[in-house]
Design a protein around this nucleic acid. Structure first.
Length: 589
RNA sequence: GCUCUCAUGGUGAAAUGGAUAUCACAACGGUCUUCGGAACCGUCAUUGUAGGUUCGAGUCCUACUGAGAGCACCA
């Protein structure tokens, strides 16, 4: 429809002698201004030397002569906008088309045949899975789904740092913390840590997290402990000390198992886990052997001088010969293409604090492997910040992803306490609602902007929230189910026969529901899902109003079948949209 | 100090250079026990400041103010 209108308007403009105008066909903000509108006369009036309204009159006259299919009327409004009102026919066809296409409704093939590798979440073993990872996962998962919805083949990757200073801190902490714990050398361990340790000793994952915190705080004291940890870092990098490597393996396994549980809950399935330990050697080879003249020595370290390219300088190999994150990044990104020679694009998603870092690394990469760098794209999202300013929770220093999920699950569980369903169903429902609430609160705003997080307010279950969307969808489905049982529509195909639009009024639901595919395109091209969030809220709100004002299931009314069709279409669009955002719709809620 | 982001009701967000700046939360007032109340209806801001570009600026440009991030051996 949009293309059809655009074509007609451009033809008319050409008739009037305006050929190079950049016009826009858009949906007016207010539904009262019609279904589509164009600023053509505003753009063209200057060239014609007429005022916009006169120009608009000329254009409309010619447009009317064209008798565009499914256009009811064309009006001029405001400073000279031309508004198109569509026929009821158009909406009826769209509404009935939606259940027919089902899960595919809204998809397109703009990236058909492409292979995309997308890396996100990236939690580090030996460290906690914190809410920043939750954010990266939400953004990455939704982006993966949008790209897949464009017909591309998507591979999901997760990159984890299993070597490096943080691992040394954790292993050192594990050894010391454990010994102290057994020997009761209480003075070595801060009291608050020891208490947590006792509570969580049966939980290996938490114990490792604690070990990291302990090691890290000792490292910062810059004493003998720091030297020990630095030494340990080198030992781990060399990988020859059997006892250390055994600990390393155990700790990594505990972490990865733990992450896997969280991913399952979140609905993410990675195709490939990359580890720093498997890319570090390749990276080092690249830096020290395969890139003459790109890096230089400074204070015994190997650096890339970013200043030459308007960036900043970064260290790739430190002064004791251990490669840094930068070097591993080079190894990782070349490995990605070695494994998948046919990928069209490799996307990396991280928080924007790493944006400048990536500019430097990708610049270096472009000098070494231009074709790899060419296809590698870094996309950043904002950071989670707290209303109080501090990133503190009741319990400790960082808010972990799992504690956040379980806190929200608690609220959801409280809410469904009275429902008639099994304990298992309740648990599953609380999980779906909790993940939906969290995901939505992250994705509702433009990717790239920081989120000021207020636990009480950000995780609302009402209004502009994930559960509101889930609820509306479940409600719409339930109405359709009821209609089937009442015999209003006898099965799927019958709906297409019986669901004739029997009323002249075109509801607001109909006027926005057909825009879903356009919203999908916008999210795909601008790499942000907040357009979808805004759209789904608008649709839900309109549907709930419609529901409040119209009796939908009524066997005696001729209007009923079509109203049911509207409910069915709404449910389908909500489900597809939520799915793109990584939010599941429960059976009942 | 340098570089990069950002600034919209009490709060959190939306708005391709277009029409009367949209939505939610909170607050206050109402519907109501229905087809599923996690619902519906109503009241509540001239977009940080000052200039500029444009027929038209929350949106583009300049300066200022304020906030955040990054800037050599962490990831």
């Amino acid at each position: 429809m949009k293309n059809q209108l655009e074509k007609a308007v451009l033809e008319v403009l050409a008739d009037l002698g305006v050929t190079d105008a950049k016009i826009a066909i858009e949906h007016p903000e207010d539904l009262n201004f019609g279904d589509y509108s164009t600023n053509a006369s505003l753009v063209a009036s200057k060239k014609l030397g007429l005022n916009p309204r006169q120009t608009a009159e000329k254009i409309v006259e010619k447009l009317n002569a064209k008798n565009i299919l499914q256009v009811e009327k064309i009006e001029i409004a405001g400073p000279g906008f031309i508004n198109f009102y569509l026929q009821a026919d158009f909406f009826e066809i769209e509404v009935k088309n939606i259940p027919k296409l089902g899960k595919k409704y809204g998809s397109n093939d703009s990236r058909k045949g492409e292979k995309i590798l997308i890396e996100y979440t990236d939690p580090n073993p030996f460290k906690q899975f914190h809410i920043g990872h939750l954010m990266s996962n939400s953004v990455g998962e939704t982006m993966s789904r949008f790209i897949a919805f464009a017909g591309a083949e998507v591979k999901r990757a997760c990159y984890s740092g299993d070597v490096g200073l943080h691992v040394a801190k954790a292993i050192w902490g594990y050894q010391k913390l454990d010994q102290n714990y057994l020997a009761e050398k209480k003075d070595k361990v801060p009291v608050y840590d020891r208490e947590v340790a006792m509570l969580s000793h049966d939980n290996e994952g938490a114990f490792w997290g604690l070990a990291y915190t302990f090691g890290s705080s000792e490292y910062d004291k810059e004493g003998a402990e720091k030297a020990e940890i630095d030494q340990l870092n080198k030992v781990i990098f060399e990988g020859k000390d059997e006892e250390i490597m055994k600990l390393h393996k155990a700790g990594k396994a505990v972490s990865m198992k733990h992450f896997e549980e969280i991913f399952k809950k979140l609905g993410t399935k990675f195709d490939r886990y990359y580890f720093e330990s498997e890319v570090v050697k390749d990276g080092l080879t690249i830096v020290t052997e395969n890139s003459k003249g790109i890096f230089e020595k400074s204070d015994n370290a190997t650096i890339f001088r970013g200043e030459n390219y308007g960036l900043h300088t970064r260290v790739f190999v430190n002064s004791v010969g251990v490669p840094t994150y930068e070097t591993k990044e080079l190894g990782l990104n070349t490995l990605k293409f070695k494994e998948n020679p046919n990928i069209n694009q490799s996307i990396i998603i991280t928080a924007h604090e790493q944006s400048d870092y990536f500019k430097v690394v990708l610049k270096a990469l472009s000098l070494i492997e231009p074709e790899v760098a060419e296809k590698t794209k870094h996309i950043s999202h904002g950071m989670l910040r707290f209303a109080g300013g501090k990133m503190s929770s009741r319990r400790g220093d960082v808010i972990t992803g799992e504690s956040m999920i379980s806190d929200v699950e608690e609220i959801a569980t409280e809410k469904i306490k009275e429902r008639v369903m099994t304990e298992e169903e309740k648990k599953k429902l609380a999980e779906i609602v909790a993940v939906g609430a969290i995901r939505y609160s992250i994705l509702k705003q433009e990717a790239g902007k920081d989120i000021i997080f207020d636990f009480e307010k950000s995780l609302s279950f009402e209004g502009d929230s994930g559960p509101y969307l889930q609820y509306t969808c479940v409600r719409a489905k339930s109405i359709v189910e009821k209609a089937k049982q009442a015999g209003v529509i006898g099965g799927f195909w019958n709906m297409f026969k019986t669901a004739k639009k029997a009323e002249t009024e075109i509801s607001r639901v109909e006027k926005i529901i057909y825009r879903f595919p356009e919203v999908v395109v916008r999210c795909q091209t601008e790499y942000s899902s907040h357009f979808m969030a805004t759209y789904l809220i608008e649709l839900s709100s309109e549907f709930n109003s419609y529901y409040a004002n119209h009796k939908i299931v009524d066997k005696t009314e001729v209007t009923s079948p079509y109203r049911v069709a509207i409910a069915q279409a709404t449910a389908q669009v909500l489900e597809n949209g939520l799915n793109l955002m990584g939010i599941e719709v429960p059976e009942k809620m």
